[in-house]
């Protein structure tokens, strides 16, 4: 039994290989890009707009508002990164209802990659906002004794991000697979629906946590922002 799509390899040449995770990711990337292009190629600034444009505007506006609520006052700067995180994870998880589909977020490699992206993005946005000195100074808050704790916190939360998403998605898929063998009719449907809910929640959690980390890095007083992490963890 393959627990991760990484184990399905289509082509390999030494270190380089193409597995199901990559293929699925590319397919999702193509789907998102083409769909976005199709919808946004005829955008109108009038009062009357198409349904798809309305849907996209609602989505983008909701993400903008969410980013602003968390604490970033210029959401247009961060929506490219945080919104893509949410959209990719959400679409990846929602497609789990398709038969034979294995979400790439069920791969620890993918979740690790996303967590590393957040790990890179936090200092990137922090330095772009406060400069490198201001960013590094945040590790000395509230005093220099906290420096090791802050470094460990930075690494552990990245690891937590990766493992949390992977664990939830992988376990959901695993449970459905197991239940298909035990009770093939009713419970897999319920668990699939539950998996959809879990997938959306995980996408939301991942996006919000990334926003919180970036907010903490870009804010002068990052102590209050970091405390928001704990109650939102599942």
């Amino acid at each position: 039994m393959k627990l991760s799509p990484d184990q399905t390899i289509f082509w390999q040449h030494g270190f380089i290989h193409i597995d199901l995770t990559l293929v699925t990711t590319w397919a999702l990337m193509a789907l998102l890009s083409v769909a976005s292009w199709l919808i946004t190629r005829r955008l109108r600034a009038d009062i009357r707009i198409s349904r798809w444009q309305c849907l996209l505007e609602m989505l983008v506006t909701a993400m903008n508002d969410q980013i602003r609520e968390v604490g970033l006052n210029r959401p247009a700067k961060y929506i490219g990164f945080i919104g893509t995180l949410f959209v990719f994870i959400a679409v990846s998880n929602l497609c789990g209802i398709l038969p034979g589909y294995t979400p790439p977020t069920g791969s620890l490699s993918t979740t690790t990659a996303l967590a590393l992206c957040v790990f890179i993005a936090v200092p990137f946005f922090g330095i772009s906002e406060n400069g490198i000195g201001g960013y590094l100074k945040s590790y000395l808050q509230p005093n220099f004794i906290m420096l090791p704790i802050n470094v460990i916190s930075e690494i552990s939360r990245t690891l937590a991000l990766a493992v949390r998403l992977f664990g939830n998605i992988m376990s959901g898929g695993l449970i459905v697979t197991i239940l298909l063998g035990l009770t093939p009719f009713f419970f897999p449907v319920v668990m699939n629906a539950l998996g959809l809910l879990t997938g959306m929640i995980q996408a939301y959690i991942f996006g919000v946590l990334a926003t919180v980390y970036i907010t903490a890095a870009t804010s002068e007083n990052d102590g209050s922002a970091k405390t928001k992490e704990s109650p939102q963890k599942k």
Partner: peptide, 30 residues
């Protein structure tokens, strides 16, 4: 799989660029 990790990171950043190009900017501009 670290190759997959690196590839996914690259994929993700490409996707960020694509969505900014085809989704966020046009919608926000509209």
């Amino acid at each position: 799989n670290w190759f997959t990790v690196i590839a996914q990171m690259i994929n993700f950043f490409i996707l960020v660029w694509l969505l900014k190009r085809f989704l966020y900017k046009p919608v926000l501009k509209a």
